[in-house]
Nucleic acid binder design. Structure first.
Lengths: 217, 217
DNA sequence: GCAGCTTTGTGAATGTGCGCACATGCGCAT
DNA sequence: ATGCGCATGTGCGCACATTCACAAAGCTGC
């Protein structure tokens, strides 16, 4: 389920605030979802709650981490040292959450050697060496659209088995390679869709899909 | 539908390659989806195809633009001039696709005045003035998590009615305000989930949801 | 004009996610 | 020890998305 990471982040925050136990309703409130959905999601992991009491935060964190495969770090390699690649490498949130940046590569020699977020940019030809020596499974494509397919091909050849694609193109990859796409312009276009259909007052956009909610204050 | 932006991008590419007509099957191939789904999606806009021939690319582009509300530009304002805010402002893809950056604001005086992507960073107190003078409907939250709720509140008070949130927190907004969330770490966690459940060979992750596909080469 | 090929548009079946509502089970107070 | 309250876990129905399969419809060549 795509909501487990959200629960996990909230539970970690609660644990930092020394909250030991939480009810499905409390977690649902914080996550902005339905309480029944929380219980269904958590029951999928097994019956780790106590009836009449709630869920033990620390134990739930451990179980979700286990389910998501976050018991160890997953180093990532970023292809493309342009605006986005630099921002991703410099964004501390990845390393904090278990995804240290093992390397940043670019095809342009001019960009090789500069240091971003504590990582030196290397040439894309070094990709296989980085992936194999650091045992990287996840590659991030942060190139211009025209270079994205080549970047993906190189990642696959180097041994990556998952790709997070920020380029606005559909990547063609062998079976077994997992691709997730984040298209920033698409998100804005979806907002403009709702803006355009906006009625004078009081009507909100329901259930677009997993995302995009209008919550009450 | 969340797929219309994808179709739109592909159709614009095809138009640039002087392709005048396209079949649902051809479009489905390029978009990485089912042909029947393409036809259902397009029929939702009205019957704009010609049986036995296909769809006229230019006309379809016009209709999808109209449906998505992309007949005019939607200026956006970015709150937060950190790593991500800078990358978003410097990323040319927004302006190209109809979302010019009307302004970048930050709460830190130290960041005010610097120029990013041709836009000068202004103080967050100028937000109402920017939003009203440029008639901005869409605000982008690119602040640290702790500042995100305040940023959202300010955007709403300034008059924005849609928010694209990059901070890993659940925003609390009045009814009628549309929020979409992009959490980069969540995307990586979903990939690690599939990596962790990976079986030795030949099994791929099916139907996570709208996203994340393993396409054959 | 008409037959045949091609592709759209759509009814029906299937699958999936969601949320209500309730039974189950645990802890606590008396 | 026993009953009561409370929160979990889950069966069921609903609504929506997806896909199949086919009928309607246009273009082409004769």
């Amino acid at each position: 389920m795509a909501r487990l990471p959200v629960y996990l982040r909230i539970l970690i925050e609660q644990a930092n605030d020394n909250v030991e136990s939480i009810s499905s309703e409390g977690l649902a409130e914080l996550a902005g979802v339905n309480a029944a959905k929380v219980r269904k999601d958590l029951s999928y992991l097994g019956s780790y709650g106590t009836r009449g009491v709630g869920y033990e935060v620390a134990f739930l964190v451990y179980q979700i981490r286990r389910e998501l495969g976050l018991t160890h770090d997953w180093p990532v390699v970023i292809v493309g040292a342009g605006n986005l690649g630099q921002a991703l490498a410099g964004y501390g949130g990845f390393g904090e959450r278990g995804f240290p940046v093992a390397g940043v590569v670019d095809i342009e020699q001019a960009k090789v050697g500069s240091v971003i977020g504590g990582v030196r940019v290397r040439h894309i030809d070094d990709l296989p060496q980085i992936v194999q020596s650091r045992r990287v499974s996840i590659g991030v494509v942060a190139t211009p659209p025209a270079a994205a397919q080549d970047a993906a091909d190189r990642l696959v050849r180097a041994g990556c088995t998952s790709i997070l694609n920020f380029a606005p193109v559909v990547l063609n990859v062998p079976i077994g390679i997992i691709v997730r796409k984040v298209d920033l312009a698409v998100e804005l276009q979806i907002l403009s869709y709702y803006e355009q259909r906006r009625t004078p007052v009081g009507l909100q956009a329901f259930g677009s899909n997993d995302n995009g909610r209008g919550a009450s204050a």
